[in-house]
Design a protein around this nucleic acid. Structure first.
Lengths: 214, 214
DNA sequence: ATTGCGCTACACCGTTGGGGTGAGATGAGA
DNA sequence: TCTCATCTCACCCCAACGGTGTAGCGCAAT
C-alpha cells in the first residue's frame, strides 16, 4: 500500500525538487503540489492525502492555520511541517494545532523518508537537532493533542467541524456545499447548529473560536 | 500625568487584587477591568487606555489575537502580556504580534510597577528570569516590530486597519459603525477598499489575512 | 420497537453584506 | 493654488447569510 502525499511549499524549485525526490520511492505517491496555504487546503480537500508535507511559512494561509483547518476537515490526514530554523517557536504552536510532526529543512533525505513512513504508521518521529528546551515543549504538545482535550469544539460532530473548518478557510456557504456535495441549505443548517453549540453570534465569531482552539 | 491602564485577566480574584495593587499608585489609573479577550477589546475601544495589562491565556479571544486587534485599532496603546510560564512560546508570538512587552506572573510587584512605567515611557523592559534562548527570540521580535515591515497591511490607511481589526473581532458593520460614530455605508466603503487592497474576496478572507500578519 | 442522534433538505422571511457609482469635506503637499 | 489622498455619506441592486420550523432517512443503543 502506497502513501499518498501532498506537498505544500511556496518555493517552486524546492517544491518540485522535493516532488522528484519523493516520487522516486515506490511506496510514495505525490498526489498534488500546492504553492500556498489556500491552495494546500483546496487540494487536500480534493485529494484527501494520507500525509501533507507543509512549509510552515507560506503566504495566504500560514502553515499553522492550514493545519488547524485540515485537522477539522480531514482527521485521518497527518500533517508534517517543514521548518527552517530549529528554534522556530511556531513549531510548538503547530504541534498544539494538531500537526503530527515537524521536519527541519536541513534533514538528511534518508531521515526525511524515514520520518514520512514512520508518520504514516502513526509513529511520532521528530527531527533531530532540535534544542532540548523546544523538544520538551514539542513532545508535550504532541502528547497533549493525543488526549483530545474538552474544548468547545469537541461538542461538534465531525460533519460540523468539517463545515466550520471550510468556513474558516474563507469559503462561502455555496463553495462549501459544492465541495461537500450537499445543498446550501444543509450547510446553513449545520452552521446554525454550530452557532448554537459554540454559543456564538454569527460566522465570524464561530471562525474565531475555531482558530483559537489549541 | 497619570497612566491610564486596562486590566484584562480572567481570574477574577487576581484581576481585582491587581487592580487594588495598581490603584494605590498615584500615577496609575485603572480605567477598566476585562475578564476575557472580547471584553478587553470592547473596553479598550471605549476607554483607549495608555497601557493594557493582559493575560496571555484568556477565553473568547486569546491574548495574542487581542493584541493584534488592539494594534490595528489603537496604535498608541501599548500591550503588556502576563505569562505564567517563562518558557511559554506564545510570548514570542505575542511580541511579534505587536505586544510591547511581557511580564511573568512571579515578578516582584516593585518590578511590575517599574516595567509599567518604563513601558509608558517607551522603554522595553522585559521580565527577568526568561531563559536566554527565549530572550533572544523575544528581543529580536520586538526589534523587528519596531521596523514595521512591508506587509500587505501596510497598504491600508489607519482607518482601514482600524475597521478591519473591528471586523476581525467579530463585529458586524452596524456594530463597527456604532463604535466609530460613522454610518454603516462608510464602514462598507472602507471594507470595499480593504478587499481591493488586500486582493481578497470577502470579509472572512480579509480577516484571515489580518490575523496572519506577524 | 422505540428512542435519540446525526445528516440531509426545504421553505419563509428578514437582515446583512458586497459591488458599483458618485460626491462633498478636509488637510497635506507639490 | 491646485492636486491628491483620505474620510465620509448616500443610493441602488442583488446575493449571501441568519433564524426558525418542519421533516425524512439511517443507524445505534436501549
Amino acid at each position: 500500500m502506497s502513501i499518498r502525499l501532498l506537498i505544500a511549499e511556496h518555493q517552486r524549485l524546492f517544491r518540485q525538487s522535493l516532488r522528484v525526490l519523493l516520487a522516486r520511492e515506490r511506496d510514495l505517491i505525490v498526489v498534488a503540489e500546492a504553492a500556498d496555504g489556500r491552495e494546500a487546503f483546496d487540494l487536500a480537500m480534493r485529494h484527501k492525502p494520507d500525509l501533507v508535507l507543509m512549509d510552515i511559512d507560506m503566504p495566504n494561509l500560514d502553515g499553522v492555520t492550514t493545519t488547524k483547518l485540515l485537522r477539522g476537515c480531514l482527521p485521518n490526514t497527518k500533517v508534517l511541517l517543514l521548518a527552517i530554523h530549529d528554534e522556530d517557536t511556531r513549531i510548538v504552536t503547530a504541534l498544539q494545532a494538531g500537526a503530527f510532526g515537524y521536519i527541519l529543512m536541513n534533514v538528511d533525505q534518508a531521515d526525511l523518508l524515514h520520518i514520512i513512513r514512520a508518520a504514516y504508521q502513526g509513529e511520532h518521529v521528530l527531527s533531530p537537532s532540535m534544542p532540548d528546551r523546544f523538544a520538551r515543549h514539542a513532545l508535550a504538545a504532541v502528547r497533549q493533542t493525543g488526549g483530545d482535550s474538552h474544548t468547545l469544539l469537541s461538542r461538534l460532530t465531525d460533519r460540523e467541524r468539517e463545515i466550520l473548518a471550510c468556513a474558516a478557510a474563507g469559503w462561502s456557504n455555496k463553495e462549501i456545499s459544492d465541495h461537500l456535495y450537499v445543498s446550501v441549505d444543509t450547510v446553513k443548517t449545520h452552521l446554525h447548529h454550530i452557532y448554537q453549540k459554540l454559543c456564538v453570534d454569527g460566522r465570524v465569531e464561530a471562525i474565531l473560536a475555531f482558530l483559537q482552539t489549541k
